[in-house]
């Protein structure tokens, strides 16, 4: 369990992280979302004791990271896949970190196998692809078999196969009961991985919410219905208390009624339906709606720039 309480980091006047309070619970994947520059990495760096908070605290199991006796056995982190010495072999990179935490060679070999790098253990990461470096970074995170795992933008720049690997891995880490915090600026990715979302913008907490609840809260459900007899169905729906807007072509967008109810009403009056689709705002739309005010840089429409 990771606990943040009023965590704040300022550089002069500018607050990069501004009074963040939330918990990251074990057994689920918590997606840490926000636009670029929202303060996700800074928050993770403060959890890991790399950056000093201006005020507030971040603790892991009730203790500050710097106070952990054997940190890699308690917390594993991937911050930057490129952070490897280009000439130090993958094995030595892991071995040096392992030794510092009283972890032996056997575990180094084990994690190399776990991430699929056993064959290149003796090679220098200078020639590794991004995907391989990402795997090496994951190996570092898993070295101490830690109950808490932090991954900062782990799928950035990966190919589909690498993305799927990370997705499966994070799911299985959570299924093993670990606390998993994964940051991303891509809602679509979090929709496939996370159970719980913490959304921040400009360093502030925007939402701390389950994935399902997030989607429902952000946009009303609607039903798309197409029928050759649109005017009649529309008036029937109005009478039944639903809101109806004309959709594309002969379609109607119905809110305030489930698809089953719309279908039932149409059936009861012998109206032929060509399409009946429950619809909800995409996660992407819900996310953009939430964070719209907090993106750092926004492109203005062409020709409108003042």
């Amino acid at each position: 369990m990771i606990e943040l309480r009023q965590l704040t980091k300022r550089y002069g006047e500018a607050a990069v992280v501004d009074g963040l309070t939330f918990d990251v619970r074990p057994g689920v994947v918590t997606g840490f979302l926000g636009p670029n520059g929202a303060g996700k990495s800074s928050t993770m760096r403060m959890i890991l004791g790399l950056d000093r908070p201006t005020s507030g605290s971040a603790t892991i199991g009730g203790r500050r990271y710097a106070g952990l006796p054997v940190p890699l056995r308690e917390v594993g982190a991937l911050l930057d896949a490129h952070a490897v010495h280009p000439r130090r072999t993958a094995f030595d990179h892991l071995l040096s970190l392992a030794y510092a935490n009283g972890i032996g060679r056997r575990r180094v070999e084990e994690v190399l196998g776990l991430v699929g790098l056993a064959d290149v253990a003796g090679r220098r990461p200078g020639g590794f692809s991004l995907g391989m470096k990402q795997r090496l970074g994951i190996a570092v995170a898993l070295l101490g078999d830690p109950p808490v795992v932090l991954l900062d933008e782990p799928v950035n720049g990966l190919d589909p196969e690498g993305i799927r690997w990370i997705r499966t891995l994070t799911r299985s880490l959570a299924a093993e009961g670990r606390t998993v915090l994964v940051s991303s600026h891509l809602m679509s990715e979090m929709a496939l991985t996370a159970d719980h979302l913490v959304v921040i913008g400009r360093g502030r907490l925007i939402a701390d919410i389950g994935l399902e609840a997030f989607v429902h809260s952000a946009a009303p459900q609607a039903v798309l219905v197409r029928t050759p007899d649109a005017p009649r169905l529309a008036s029937l729906l109005w009478d039944a208390g639903a809101a109806v807007r004309p959709g594309a072509g002969d379609g109607l967008t119905v809110t305030g009624m489930s698809s089953a109810e719309v279908g039932g009403l149409a059936g009861a009056h012998g109206i032929v339906l060509h399409e009946l689709t429950p619809w909800r705002a995409s996660l992407e739309e819900a996310y953009l709606e939430l964070t719209g005010d907090s993106v750092e840089f926004t492109a203005s429409p062409a020709g409108v720039a003042s």
């Binding site: 890699l72 982190a77 930057d80 510092a100």
Partner: peptide
């Protein structure tokens, strides 16, 4: 300086936060 150049200092500090 090789650690700073390669960006591994944060990794080293997470392994040895003291």
């Amino acid at each position: 300086t090789s650690e700073y150049a390669a960006g591994t200092m944060p990794v080293s500090v997470t392994a040895v936060p003291r």
